[in-house]
Design a protein around this nucleic acid. Sequence first.
DNA 1: ACGAGAACCTGTTTGC
DNA 2: TGCAAACAGGTTCTCG
Length: 281
Amino acid sequence: MPELPEVETVRRGLIPALEGAAFQQVVVRRADLRRPFPENMANRLVGKRVERLGRRAKYLLIYMSDDLVLVIHLGMSGHMTVYETKNAPPPGKHDHVDFITDGGHTIRFTDPRRFGSMDIADASSLESHPLFANLGPEPLSNAFNGPALAAALKGKKGPIKTALLDQTVVAGLGNIYVCEALFRSGLSPIRKAGTIKGAVADRLAGDIVAVLQDAIASGGSSIRDHLKIDGTLGYFQHSFAVYDREGQPCPGGECDLSACGGIKRIVQSGRSTFYCPTKQR
DNA sequence: ACGAGAACCTGTTTGC
DNA sequence: TGCAAACAGGTTCTCG
């Protein structure tokens, strides 16, 4: 899925087709993904004009007229495709929703695993909405830094890997970018979360921000390429230092593969963790 | 209160 | 080659 950088990339990719446009028709082919859609979702959206696109954690926010926000989570396998309506192909098995605009675009939401969700909320009280009330700081905002991270981790006895996946600690990280950020910081994923403080917390917070910004930068470029081809938004290829690279040497070159065995895969709280046992302590 | 595990779904990859 | 198990980028509920 879409972790924070992918959602941000989708947001930016949707701006040209959505900002300023109104929903002319909304076709819902399946009204329940992870949870049921709001009552009459399609009818409530038709006629609304999109004012701007936002994002909070991994949630895409479509701010509309009448103080309403369409809140979309892409789950594990969700993605968006932008078509010119006249060229939109027949919907496939997992194409659950089409948003058809008065600007001649169709934005199609596809989600094979159906872990995604949609909701309609009031813009003025968004932060108190149940989905957002307990979220931690936005990592790319001023509210996120070493001291804030250390405070959120204080007293936590579980591993730092698991703590960073907790959206109440910091909002928007997923399995890939947690692994990548810990590698950059040279911190073992097994290390007790509560031991991260001071300069170490400063470093980790900085590396979390850097990893996300790099991913957004590379996603932004691949999005432009994608749009030329078929308009698909949601996933993009880029290279990771450790994620899904079990047994391979980690970047940097100073690890001796025969001595350290390369990148290791372990399972923590049921999720794969990839790391370099030599560099990450 | 906290943390680990299961559950929610379907598609793809891996291993015998 | 074929089939079953394992696994996939998330969230949320239950249980100890």
